[in-house]
Amino acid sequence: MSRRRARLTAGIATIAATALGGVAVTTAAIAFGGVESVNASPAGAAAGRNGVCDTGEFCYYFNSGNKGSLSDFTGSVADLGAKQPSCYEFKSAGTGKGKCVKNNAASVWNRSSKTVRVYFNSGYSGKYQDFKAGAKGNLNSSLKNQNASHELLSSAKPIGCKTDGTDSKLPTTILVYRTSLNRVDRVPFKTYVKNVLPNEWVSSWPKASLNAGAMAVKSYGWYWALHSTRKTAGGQCFDVYDSTSSQVYKPGSAKASTSAAVDATWSAKMTRGGKILRAHYCATTTACGGWVTGDWMSQYGSRDKANAGWSYSRILKYYYSGIVLS
């Protein structure tokens, strides 16, 4: 799908230049700048964190043996942050108070109801150590003062190349090949979709267009989570690239309007013949040469139809022939 970058980038740049009276402005500054991650932002996840390890929380301690200052969490965090003032900090009284949790924790207490996995790398990757519900313990030698992210695991946590999704059930995660980093990240599937959509659709477009885009992005990722046989040169399995070879995934790029579209359509699925649709899309009616009509959607076309009052389901059925929305 190497054509995909041509779909929308040029159009966004044109919009930016037009809006600013023809002044040349970089696409990134107009379309993608100044956005906080909905998954890993300390500000967004800080509610309820009070420096007390309450029931239902997962807590890091600055020192071994559950001593020193602690930092409490109620959910997964993809990147604990390395610098003040944007990192998650140790909050309670004691040694280490105010320091960033990332790469500074020595022990944990898991008071949540799920197994929690602590990772060496951000994005839930690299070496890890699991702590069952109720467990206290020290981080092992690979992770002590080298912790970057943690994840609350479902009871059926996919491992290796496996996915827990089906054509009727969303996968909980997707394997994303980070091309510039040369690594594979297992990303929560909803986090993935929310951090793709603003890079493939213009976030200021009408709601129906964004909803249609959310369905296409989700369906494309869902399809490859079920069907990919891709592997890196080193033999790691992955489902999608983070680039225009698949869909553009940028951690931390989620926006309010596009995330709302993902939430609004999350319970819906798009199938053809009972199978999840591999939903292609591109910028205009001339940018997708070689794709069969009925298998792809025009992004700008979705915008225009939304402006004309079309619903997102009508837009999808216009572009993708023979689909069932349920």
Rank of each mutant, 00 (worst) to 15 (best):
V108Q: 06
D79P: 01
G274I: 10
S326K: 11
G33V: 12
N195T: 09
L175D: 01
S92R: 07
D79L: 01
R278W: 12
R3A: 08
A106W: 05
Y88V: 05
G56K: 10
R303S: 04
N63F: 06
Q236D: 12
P251C: 02
V292A: 12
W310I: 05
V217I: 15
S41G: 15
A82K: 13
L175I: 03
K144P: 02
E57P: 03
V116R: 01
V77Y: 00
A78Q: 02
L8K: 02
V101Y: 01
S113L: 13
R272I: 12
I15P: 00
R117H: 04
R230W: 04
R117N: 06
G290N: 09
A279I: 06
G221D: 00
F58Y: 15
A17S: 15
Y281I: 00
M297K: 04
G137S: 07
T26K: 13
P85S: 10
K269A: 02
V196M: 07
C53A: 15
W296F: 14
R111M: 11
K97S: 14
L226F: 04
S142L: 10
F58C: 14
P188D: 04
T173W: 01
K67V: 11
V25G: 10
S204I: 14
I174A: 00
R5G: 05
S302N: 04
S245Y: 08
K190C: 00
M215G: 05
Y241H: 10
E200W: 03
N195A: 05
L175P: 00
S92T: 12
S2E: 11
F120I: 09
V38C: 02
V240H: 03
S311Q: 11
A254W: 00
A28E: 13
V52S: 14
W291P: 00
S122A: 11
Y88K: 08
C87L: 11
K255T: 11
A268P: 00
K97G: 01
A6T: 13
K305P: 00
I12G: 03
N104W: 00
L170M: 09
N110M: 13
G94L: 08
K67C: 06
C288Y: 07
G252C: 07
Q84E: 09
S313T: 15
R49C: 12
K114T: 06
K67P: 04
S321H: 15
G274H: 10
G165P: 02
Y320L: 07
Q299P: 03
C53Y: 08
A308C: 07
P198N: 09
Q129T: 09
A308F: 10
G137N: 10
V248S: 02
D263C: 15
S257D: 12
R4Q: 11
Q84D: 09
A24C: 05
A105L: 06
P206V: 12
Q84F: 08
M297E: 06
K144W: 06
G33E: 08
C59D: 04
N39V: 04
G48W: 09
T232L: 15
K194P: 02
L80I: 13
R278P: 06
K190N: 03
T14H: 14
L139G: 06
